[in-house]
Design a protein around this nucleic acid. Structure first.
Length: 844
RNA sequence: GCGGACGUGGCGGAAUGGUAGACGCAACGGACUUAAAAUCCGUUGGGAGUAAUCCCGUCCGGGUUCGAGUCCCGGCGUCCGCACCA
């Protein structure tokens, strides 16, 4: 009932091996991809994250971490501009297609200021991974073994003032709304759920013995999801960068040294995996909340994260593996407080494996005998009631793993953050009339760091409030910001005065079907979900969820080849001999033997790419499209093989011949009133295929569409082959109907071939403008049905009955069968199960 | 460590609890051809049998069911995500 046409947003990200927008790509640049889209569709969208794929020679080297990125960032921009020009594309055109042009950024900056006003943006200190060579912040995935992925230098930990979007304010909302996204893959929803990482627990304020603390601190607040195990506590632990640890370290050089050591290991993932649990006893004593005489030692421990909870815990070794490892190392012992149902509380002990399963409380005073849930509730209730200094001792809290989205980047290439720092007025938004803040053209990349920061004049401005000297913010926005709302902007890209035209955006959004790679399961898709909510809050749109349907496509993958000396070789330069295990490869030009390596996602660095121009020259674009859709479901990877492409190519030829044969059939123009059995067979095959393909296209099951089209083409060939002289008029009409249907069925997958065939069949129109054919439902129903007959669950015979035969009729026909008679040996069956239209099972 | 997905011929893969292997690739045999390519016809999960037909078969072991690739329990293996998250 919804009159809106469906539209699709295809990513134009540089993940060119993605199956639906085919891509990569030897000597093939993002610019080419965009130009092709532009030619094919009249418009295209280039996402800024695509810029770095803009075909520059240094890129591969940079990926291999051999060349410093500064050397190519600069070339990148120049090269991009040059390429646009060489393609005959004006900068106006670039503006039309790019989300990173000033017009787009004007609106993004306006929205940033709206978000700021609405409290969705925060500027705060945060700990970052700092690349000392490039002078930039590294994301976690850019840190490898404690080194920057491009510089290879040791990563530094730094405190930096950064801009954040307060996505964590939406943790609960983003989590619960996942349930409404019923056209998203479960996998993606689960990944987001885990990423948000909700856990319910209790904040508990432990008293400290002031005599033992460095500055007479009296209290340590911890977060726990297991308050039930409070009577199993053996120690307290705080993160190395916890204030208490820092304070203690100031008075204890040994502790300071320990903290330094722990921080070094901090960043490297592999080190974390293997790092031993280490702790340092501060000498501080904490008091158990239920027993003033029970003192617990406070450790600084390397496995406590400052970022999660309060950066402090109480350790219950019997029921937490990390805590158990810790006490076993430092000889603190353990007391089990939850007894599994199968164990005797009197004898239950923990040695090396913590127990985190269900059970009843033991060794826990007033909690004894309760279930875990009852005990959690009881502890929470008691501690909530108790107060100290006007505040309750404990407080229930929901904690999330999701942290705020840091959008600050020290890069030239990005949307400037539109604020001004004034000594007198503080942080001042750039007035609307001054938007957009544009990037200077004359930047230099002659030294590490942010070129905007180095620019002699750009950052010097006057304060909009007091007109005194002030400084522009030189951080730029993460390009994920750009990609978080472009699909909304596209609903009205001509609006010069506002980011969206709400009425239009509300009509079009949400996107009906979003298609992209699984690599965006978390970041891009979560950011977009947040951003849409933020736009809702600031009045730019009235919806919360941007993508109603999501489909994650697979990749095109290919064998890899390398020489004995380890250099990667392009498939086009390799000749394959033999088959199966005996396959060998050699370099076509020199005969040098080549090692055949793993099948991997097409990438420039491993050179296992095929050039679309080569394929198109040899087989045509339709063949390539057909092959990519035919072999496996689109959410899985497809292995690009020469044999597979040739198979597709043969079918293309066959369809063309078939169209020619049908075009040669002359027959009546008007529909005959009756059809003979042969003609009816053709029509049934056509409408069966039509029904199947229609259904499978709607469900994106393209490989099954392909199979149905093969089946239909086979049936059609057979029917034509059986005609001895000339077809009867009813047959001729049916063949032509079938031909028309066939062409329209494969048109979405092979548009060029379809248009050729359509013309060959004598049509004056374009298939592209034709309506999808209508199924004649009558043709899908057979008058008689052949049912398989099972005896004791094994197929023994078939029975053919009228379509509308009743159960008793079918049963009688089955019992009359020879095979059934023989199996029953004169006895009557115990049971006969008739599943209408499906199967019959006789239980002897 | 936690979470998830998957496991079917030589290969990619079909199969709302109802004839396992659709469709394609590869292979083999045949027709056409001087020959090759292309095309067309046929065979192709394993085993027994002249044949009709029968037996075995969806990673392994159990279970539920008239009937299990599909559902349940327990293993093994592969892949993916998260990861010292209290």
């Amino acid at each position: 009932d919804d009159p809106r046409p469906k539209y699709y947003v295809l990513e134009m990200f540089p993940y060119p091996s993605g199956r639906i927008h085919m891509g990569h790509v030897r000597n093939y640049t993002m610019g080419d991809v965009v130009a092709r889209f532009k030619r094919a569709m009249g418009h295209a969208v280039l996402h800024p994250m695509g810029w770095d794929a803009f075909g520059l020679p240094a890129e591969n080297a940079a990926v291999d971490r051999k060349v410093h990125p500064r050397t190519w960032t600069y070339e990148n921009i120049a090269s991009m501009k040059k390429q646009l020009q060489s393609m005959g594309l004006s900068l106006d055109w670039a503006r039309e297609i790019a989300t990173c042009d000033p017009a787009y950024y004007k609106h993004q900056q306006k929205m940033f200021l709206d978000f700021l006003k609405a409290g969705l943006v925060e500027r705060k200190q945060s700990k970052v991974n700092w690349d000392p060579v490039d002078h930039t912040v590294l994301a976690n995935e850019q840190v490898i073994d404690g080194r920057g992925w491009r510089s290879g230098a040791e990563v530094e930990q730094r405190e930096l003032t950064q801009w954040f979007f307060k996505i964590s304010d939406y943790s609960e909302e983003l989590l619960t709304a996942l349930d409404t996204l019923d056209r998203w893959p479960d996998k993606v929803r689960l990944m987001q759920k885990n990423w948000i990482g909700r856990s319910e627990g209790l904040l508990v304020r432990f008293m400290l013995d002031p005599a033992t603390t460095p500055n007479s601190e009296t209290e340590l607040e911890i977060f726990t999801t297991r308050p039930d195990t409070l009577f199993g506590a053996k120690f307290m632990a705080v993160a190395p960068d916890h204030p208490l640890a820092q304070a203690a370290a100031a008075k204890n050089p040994k502790l300071a040294a320990f903290i330094d050591e722990a921080k070094k290991i901090g960043t490297a993932q592999e080190a974390i995996d293997t790092a031993e649990k280490m702790g340092f006893d501060t000498g501080i004593k904490a008091v158990h909340p239920f027993d003033p005489n029970w003192k617990l030692p406070v450790y600084v421990a390397n496995f406590i994260l400052m970022e999660y909870g309060t950066g402090a815990i109480f350790g219950c070794p019997a029921h937490d593996q990390r805590d158990l490892d810790f006490v076993n190392k430092y000889g603190l012992g353990n007391t089990p407080v939850v007894c599994p149902p199968t164990q005797d509380p009197a004898t239950f002990v923990i040695t090396n494996v913590a127990y985190d399963g269900d059970g009843r409380m033991i060794n826990s005073r007033f909690l004894d005998g309760m279930t875990i849930d009852e005990a959690k509730e009881e502890v929470a209730k008691r501690l909530e009631r108790e107060t100290r200094g006007n505040r309750p001792v404990a407080q229930r809290q929901v904690n999330y793993r999701l942290r705020d989205w840091g959008i600050s980047r020290q890069r030239y290439w990005g949307c400037p953050i539109p604020v001004i720092h004034c000594e007198h007025c503080g942080t001042v938004p750039v007035p609307a009339k001054d938007l957009p803040v544009t990037l200077p053209d004359d930047v230099t990349f002659d030294r590490p760091g942010n070129p905007l920061d180095h620019h002699p004049t750009w950052k010097n401005v006057t304060c909009p409030h007091c007109s005194g000297p002030a400084r522009r913010e030189t951080d730029t926005m993460d390009t994920f910001v750009d990609s978080s709302w472009y699909f909304i902007r596209f609903t009205d890209p001509w609006n010069e005065t506002a980011p969206t035209t709400p009425a239009v955006a509300n009509r079009w959004m949400p996107v009906d079907q979003y298609i992209g790679g699984i690599e965006h399961a978390i970041l891009h898709l979560l950011y977009s979900r947040f951003f849409t909510r933020a736009m809702h809050k600031t009045g730019h749109i009235d919806i919360d969820e941007p993508f109603a349907g999501l489909f994650t496509q697979g990749m095109v993958v290919h064998e890899t080849y390398r020489t004995k000396s380890g250099e990667w070789v392009v498939p086009a330069d390799v000749t394959i001999e033999g088959m199966g295990d005996a396959r060998t490869a050699r370099l076509t030009a020199t005969g040098e033997p080549i090692e055949i390596g793993a099948i991997e996602k097409m990438s420039k660095s491993k050179k296992n790419t095929v050039d679309p121009d080569d394929i198109i020259a040899a087989y045509g674009a339709d063949t390539a499209r057909w092959f990519m859709l035919s072999d496996s479901p689109p959410d899985r990877d497809v292995i690009w093989t020469e044999e597979g492409v040739q198979g597709a190519w043969r079918f293309v030829q066959r369809l063309w011949r078939l169209a020619g044969e049908i075009a040669g059939v002359s027959g009546p123009v008007t529909r005959p009133t009756t059809f003979g059995p042969e003609a009816l067979k053709v029509r049934k095959a056509a409408h069966r295929a039509l029904a199947n393909v229609s259904d499978d296209i709607g469900r994106l099951r393209f490989n099954r569409c392909v199979a149905h089209i093969y089946e239909f083409a086979n049936a059609l060939s057979d029917a034509i082959g059986e005609i001895e002289t000339a077809p009867t008029p009813d047959m001729a009409w049916s063949l032509r109907e079938a031909g028309d249907i066939l062409v329209r069925l494969f048109h979405p997958m092979m548009p060029h071939l379809a248009e050729e065939c359509w013309a060959a069949l004598g049509h004056q129109t374009l298939v592209a403008t034709e309506a999808w054919p209508q199924v004649e439902a009558d043709l899908l129903v057979e008058n008689t049905i052949t049912l398989p007959v099972q005896i004791n669950g094994r197929k023994r015979a078939d029975v053919t009955v009228p379509r509308d035969a009743g159960k008793s009729e079918v049963e009688a026909a089955v019992l009359a069968l020879d095979a059934v008679q023989k199996a029953l040996e004169g006895k009557s069956p115990k049971k006969v199960i008739v599943v209408p239209q499906r199967i019959v099972n006789v239980v002897a």
